[in-house]
Write a protein that binds this DNA or RNA. Sequence first.
DNA 1: TTGATATATATCACTTTGATATACAGTCAA
DNA 2: TTGACTGTATATCAAAGTGATATATATCAA
Lengths: 180, 180
Amino acid sequence: MDIKSLCLGALSIGDASGYEIKKMFEEGSFSHFYDAGYGSIYPALNKLLAEDLVTCIEIEQEGRPAKKVYSLTNTGLTKLKTDLSEEPARDKTRSESIVMMFFGHLLSPAHRERVIESYIEHFRDGCTCIEEIDPTNQPYGRQFVRGLGLAIYQAAANYLEENKDLLLVNEEERDIGDAA
Amino acid sequence: MDIKSLCLGALSIGDASGYEIKKMFEEGSFSHFYDAGYGSIYPALNKLLAEDLVTCIEIEQEGRPAKKVYSLTNTGLTKLKTDLSEEPARDKTRSESIVMMFFGHLLSPAHRERVIESYIEHFRDGCTCIEEIDPTNQPYGRQFVRGLGLAIYQAAANYLEENKDLLLVNEEERDIGDAA
DNA sequence: TTGATATATATCACTTTGATATACAGTCAA
DNA sequence: TTGACTGTATATCAAAGTGATATATATCAA
């Protein structure tokens, strides 16, 4: 599964431009479990167009640049279903915040605190963002994924909030505490 | 922060070969929050060597191929601390399993079940793997990250286990259930 | 003895990232 | 009223990273 498949997925929800697909990745439905930038979306859409998996109509707008709205073809929908039927690759995660916390002893206490506080905020914002999605009348898969995202983000935020003192107290103070 | 920084981090724990660093990413300390393959690790180590951030000794072994063991230099440790002091980029996640569940209505019930069951297994295995890490005598950052990983994986596994029926029952059956 | 698994390094085509460029319209403050 | 910033919209590209493959040696099991 590559960005082309994800674009097909996005278009299965409704016709959209590259810009709108990008917004789905950064704010909307996909934002919590997949990433993609313009640099991969636009070339993907061009390839899909060349393969007749999508069609494209250029739409003029008042006071805004014209946009190219893409639609899924029947072949495109079939291709999407095929892609979704393969074995999923294992999750890939890349968290610089966790790397920094992992090597917390090499950081200044100030930076350690900045990292953990903004990471808590990241998960809290994520929760808010997911909660704003109205699950009613959505396919069960989307409701299910919404709940999973919420469960993970809440667990992360709670763990961080409840245990941050462990990371923020510096090693010397802790040793004194242990000795006492 | 790139793979070079991550290699410096790995070497700050102890001297290691490229092969051993890879294992840290797929089994060990880093496995749950960062990914890297040979195709990025070996070139990274060569670049680090050229920049004098690491040194390398080739070690012959009985019954095994010779290995190149890398060690952090003082400059390398300084560079690591600098890299860790930058603002962390936001998390990048890529979960094909979640994509498939999201588009569950386009999948066969059999595939839907396969995806969700193997995803539960993935998180349960992850928990087991993390639990096997002995947190005693480790820097607080590592203990903290171990706990965070466990909290997230348990939350995910529990949510999936408790709600999987929502996804597995097919739409028709559900409608009948709703009507009854 | 054939195949599988594990150790170990290396390469490379392809994909993706992240930054940048271009362009137009609205907003908001100095 | 000018300049800065934000938002919409498409596009490109060097650099980084992925994932598959190649090579070599040793062990263990069928």
